[in-house]
Design a protein around this nucleic acid. Structure first.
Lengths: 219, 219
DNA sequence: GTCTATAAGAAGATAGAC
DNA sequence: GTCTATCTTCTTATAGAC
């Protein structure tokens, strides 16, 4: 890897651990194996390093938009798969989503850095929300919509159903980011969550609709 | 309010907005209406201000442990209420939990500060997780356990049921902390979430158990 | 492109008058 | 307890040799 890229890489690691203000240009240079002044031949200043990281992040987020999919390359293929998905496949899907977010080297460091820096810059807060809340929910919602229309899941309230699937994954992710020792337990919880989700939402009888009528009568 | 307390208050506000490293002692002093050197008559140094905030936070967290309850003073009374809770009351409960976390002046600033600073100090990460994940789930789980044993909710998997109730609230909270403009929409989503939660988990027929058997046959 | 030396300035903290 | 003046240290960034 060339020096210019290594600077970004080491800076990202440090920013994700300590936050921008607590990382000194000399720290970054040391990790790269050069002295601080040499670094200014590659980037105008410290802020330019940060900006380059954000730029690269946005590029990767776009590139990897499909990485959460069963088949990242082809949404049509995904749709076919989801129409016939089993509980075990749903669990695999959830775990993959979770583990990708948690362990992907770049993704994990980006997320931690955004978590620390998001309050300094509204654009970063928006980027964080898009990547870890809105986009996953949007994509999962699309898939669940397909599953509902093909009869695998119930059709009402797909939006809330998606929230019910993803919110626990998101919460467990924030737990493991901060306390990595809880990952094993989190994976167990994740699996139990998805099994129960599947039990609640699989559409083998019209449970939900019936219950709603009763609920309305009660009120 | 005396100067010593006002220093903590203004410092907390600034730390929650910018993070410890980006707040200068002179900024805090200016907000209080004194000059920076005067501040050192009240606290030994900048770190001591931060430590005092954390100390106060821990004290308030203990004091307000009951604030999330319908009746903070008496868990037994809570139990009685929960045994006969209606959907509308469940919605009120969820909204109160959400709005308390979101708008309580101290709580909100503490949470934002912890969000920024948690990666600098494992103790802060643990405090964050306890306050916003483990304690709420523990308390809600206890209440849902009561509701299950009294026949209001189904009895299996109370732990996951609690996760399904709280995780969306947690996620919406992190959204609104970062993008306050989304609060109105978040409240709507929250209400739809709880209605669907109630529909899924209320125990007016043995839907879930039946479905589980079918699911096992399928596998 | 990397180095050493160093300038320039920011921020925390102290001294001592009032 | 608050102030002005000042010290000290740390950090970014530049100058200029190699």
């Amino acid at each position: 890897m060339d020096t210019k890229q290594r600077i970004l890489d080491e800076a990202l690691t440090l920013f994700s651990e300590k936050g921008y203000a607590n990382v000194y240009v000399a720290d970054i240079a040391e990790r790269v194996g050069i002295k601080a002044p040499s670094l200014y031949k590659h980037y105008k200043n410290k802020q330019a390093i940060f900006d380059a990281i954000i730029e690269e992040m946005n590029r990767r987020f776009l590139e990897e938009a499909g990485a959460l999919q069963i088949n990242g390359a082809d949404a049509g293929a995904d749709a076919e798969i989801y129409k016939h998905i089993s509980e075990e496949q749903l669990i695999t899907l959830g775990k993959n989503l979770f583990l990708y977010f948690l362990h992907d080297d770049y993704t994990g460091r980006f997320r931690k850095m955004l978590t620390i820096e998001q309050f300094h810059d509204k654009k970063l807060a928006a980027a964080y929300m898009k990547q870890y809340v809105d986009d996953p929910i949007s994509y999962q919602g699309m898939l669940f919509g397909l599953m509902a229309s093909s009869g695998v899941l119930q059709t009402e309230n797909v939006e809330i159903m998606t929230l019910h699937f993803y919110a626990p994954i998101y919460m467990l992710l924030t737990v493991c980011d901060r306390e990595p020792g809880r990952e094993k337990q989190a994976l167990k919880t994740l699996e139990a969550h998805i099994r129960q989700f599947n039990t609640l939402y699989s559409r083998e009888e019209k449970r939900v609709e019936e219950n709603k009528k009763k609920s309305r009568r009660k009120v």
